[in-house]
Design a protein around this nucleic acid. Structure first.
Lengths: 188, 188
DNA sequence: GCAGAATTGTTAGTCACTAACGTCACGCGT
DNA sequence: ACGCGTGACGTTAGTGACTAACAATTCTGC
């Protein structure tokens, strides 16, 4: 049951992504997208609070934080975060359609544009804060929780940008590789 | 020998920071800053390419990458990065004046503003890329180098935001704490 | 003091985004 | 099937960041 709102939103989104990919993000004004979608620029902004949201929005679940919270308290904060993200990813990868072409297309657009990279990082901050809160609730002190969460999101974000820049790199491999890079290896 | 350019730049900077701190970043238009500094808005933009540069610019040296590169090749990439940043920081802290009040003031303004946080992260990306390149030159594969660099900058950035939000937290302590959070501890 | 160079000002314009308010069409109940 | 209320959409007018082109000013070396 697709409502009218969803249809309009999707139409705007597809046209915008096509134009951005073809002509470049900065070269395409919002009015152009609105025109080609047969709507006014106001309608565009009602569906996407800002131009960049078209390309940056995907609900990278605060569900990640739940998986972090679920890790055994005996582990170091970094290790809890690592494993939480890995588990969350495998859960997400199951219900596929996340690794679909639209995501890759968006990552491709974002990866080449510093301002959009920053916007994407900004959008990940809610996840980062959720992870930090999960760790801090587990008794980790605030500075360490914040630093670990920042590191995890930083590594993850870098990996996703690589995916956008490298058509041959799979998202699953990238995420797994990023988390492996933070693996301390066997502890003494 | 302070040139005219430097004087004008400094005047704009001081007035802008004062206004931002007093009334909020979004509430102060560029024209207002220009007026109070006795210049036109064009002069503002000639000294600061964008409004946010006033608050986000400080040359957090690509010197960091040199210290990373200088770490022994036997260590893991993460460990090389950790130690490189720690050494770079101690070197920077020596020639003081980095930890001065202006930096804290700017961090305070940035920390409360999501868009500015993103801009600051964006400005750290040149350092991140330099670190990634340093690691990749040392034989680390690209994904791991990129992920580690992202993690380091992510942790560092989070720590700096905490400094901005917490007047009692010292910058040195924050940086040290952030790096400690990524310490794998004694390896087996 | 004067020529040339660097710095700044003026003006006019583009684009992202917002507020207020009017209008129309969709889909719901009857 | 048909009206009617609500939500989706349009229009207009405006603000603020930022740029280009060119004119005017101040500064500096000689």
């Amino acid at each position: 049951m697709t409502t009218r709102t969803e249809r309009t939103r999707l139409r705007i989104l597809e046209i915008a992504l096509r134009l951005f990919a073809a002509e470049g993000y900065d070269a395409v004004p919002v009015t152009r997208i609105a025109d080609e979608a047969g709507v006014s620029h106001m309608t565009f902004f009602r569906h996407f609070p800002s131009k960049s949201d078209v390309v940056v929005t995907d609900p990278y679940d605060p569900l990640i934080a739940e998986f972090v919270r679920a890790q055994p308290a005996g582990l170091s904060p970094l290790e809890r975060g690592r494993r939480g993200i890995l588990e969350a990813w495998s859960r997400i990868a199951d219900q596929s359609d996340v690794a679909d072409d639209s995501v890759r297309l968006r990552l491709g657009i974002v990866a080449t544009h510093p301002g959009l990279r920053a916007r994407m990082w900004e959008s990940q901050q809610v996840t980062q804060q959720a992870i930090a809160a999960a760790l801090a609730d587990g008794g980790t002190d605030v500075l360490e929780a914040e630093a670990v969460a920042g590191a995890l999101i930083g590594a993850l974000t870098s990996a996703l940008f690589l995916v956008g820049a490298h058509p041959t790199l799979g998202m699953g491999d990238a995420v797994a590789g990023a988390m492996r890079a933070l693996d301390p290896g066997p502890q003494s």
